[in-house]
């Protein structure tokens, strides 16, 4: 069965007609052609498809597209403002926190979600925060460094 749905992704409203069996990940990648969100395992093990769904971090492979009807989503395509990279994106570049880059979009969204919940996380909280996101290149050190620096700079910048 096919269903008409409406979603808002990165402030853009989309309408689509999809089978009930499409995942949110499939909706984003194959229907809306927002391919920044990656499919790694497809079963909630690797976190490469993490997106922000109504303000909460989710794995897009474990949500049906029809469940997203009426939802507001944020994906990596909404991270930069035009040509202006976000603080996290710049910090990931500075710390060489991306190698093959496959985990990076979800890692940045996960880090952004973590910093919204815990603006000044300890290293332990950063590690726990990205525990659901596998990276097979970096060994995580550079990623933790990148997130820590954004948190520290934001703290210094406040007041």
């Amino acid at each position: 069965m096919e269903y008409d749905i409406e979603v808002t992704v990165n402030d853009v409203r989309y309408k689509a007609r999809i089978p009930a069996s499409f995942t949110l990940l499939q909706l984003l990648r194959d229907v809306l052609h927002l391919t920044g969100t990656k499919e790694g395992c497809g079963i909630g093990e690797c976190g490469a498809c993490s997106v922000v769904f109504n303000g909460e971090l989710v794995n897009a492979c474990l949500v049906l597209g029809v469940e997203a009807n009426g939802a507001t989503l944020r994906t990596i395509e909404g991270e930069a403002k035009g040509e202006q990279l976000s603080d996290l994106q710049r910090s990931f570049i500075k710390h060489h926190a991306a190698q093959c880059g496959f985990c990076t979009p979800a890692m940045i969204l996960t880090a952004g979600d973590l910093l919204r919940r815990i603006p000044t996380p300890t290293d332990e909280q950063i590690i726990e925060g990205i525990a659901g996101n596998l990276c097979r290149c970096t060994g995580y050190e550079a990623i933790v460094d990148a997130i820590r620096e954004v948190a520290r700079d934001a703290k210094g910048g406040a007041k």
């Binding site: 069965m1 269903y3 089978p19 009930a20 069996s21 499409f22 995942t23 499939q26 194959d30 499919e39 497809g42 049906l64 029809v66």
Partner: peptide, 14 residues
């Protein structure tokens, strides 16, 4: 093949 909808019988109502 990796997506849900490409197999036979994967045609459910929601």
């Amino acid at each position: 093949a990796s997506f849900l909808s490409h197999g036979a019988n994967m045609n459910f109502a929601y």
